[in-house]
Write a protein that binds this DNA or RNA. Structure first.
Lengths: 148, 148
DNA sequence: CTCTGTGCAAACACTTTGCAGCTAA
DNA sequence: TTAGCTGCAAAGTGTTTGCACAGAG
């Protein structure tokens, strides 16, 4: 059964998660479990607030900060990650030449990358069929020469 | 001379910009010119605040909002653009399978894209030589099926 | 029992809005 | 002249911090 398999998969992920917490010296609290579960049972790439809403349904007393802090913790121990580029101040670019971006996750610097082969990335049909794609780019994250 | 060429290029861009403003029914004010110039003479993908600092040097009385509003205006008329993903609340993902993201610029929804050929994007040597690249992804923006 | 995690509240940072006076066309 | 722009101030939204109590190990 599909549903069964999903449950197995979720249980598996939660086990892995628990192990990862223990390894990182983090206690396994009901809140953390609830937040983690909320995160792996959605595909909507939620914001802190969305997770808060979701967890609040079976956990009415949880506080917003706990959710926020917990998500940041998950990010640190590698149990979740921040969607590329999100959560930062708005930044502008006036260079319309085709190029790509590399962002340093420490100093937040954004470096232009000019790499020919990426200039003609094709939009997958599954997307092109439903959505109107206006921009496409190859995006890199990591530590820059000065921060690594 | 390189410097001469640069000046020519900048003058050219400012002319284009002026035309674009006129076409969009926007007045060409000293502030707008200063902000635009600040934007095209840097490669640092500045935030509003960075532009504000920069413009403030030769334009001490400009206000922060003017800079902010002007940059948003530039984005609307296509004289500049917001760096992909920036300027939004932080969002999380717990799916570590290799996949790409499409973001709807209207409803902000993020949709997963699973497209095999993108799974092994190579990091350009120019980057790999200097930086430590931890994540690489192909990123799309536009209007989703519901918003277009 | 101990020490980390949680909840609360206040502080912050960034962005947006409303309005009155100013200015480019 | 006049519609649109700028500067100021206040409000809004999302995030971070400090601390006391509670609960996991």
């Amino acid at each position: 059964m599909v549903v069964e398999n999903e449950n197995v998969e979720i249980r598996q992920k939660i086990d892995d998660f628990s192990a990862r917490c223990r390894q990182a010296g983090l206690k396994i609290t009901p809140q953390r479990l609830a937040i983690y579960k909320a995160l792996i049972t959605t595909t909507e790439h939620p914001s802190t607030d969305m997770v808060y809403q979701r967890v609040g349904k079976d956990f009415p007393n949880i506080s917003f900060d706990t959710v926020n802090r917990t998500l940041l913790t998950f990010n640190q121990i590698g149990a979740a990650f921040v969607v590329e580029g999100s959560g930062e101040v708005r930044r502008f670019d006036a260079n319309f030449e085709c190029h790509q971006h590399f962002k340093c996750i420490k100093c937040k610097r954004i470096i232009d990358v000019f790499h020919e082969p990426f200039n003609d990335v094709q939009v997958p049909v599954e997307l092109a069929g439903n959505c109107e794609v206006l921009r496409k780019t190859v995006y890199f994250e990591g530590y820059c020469d000065e921060c690594k």
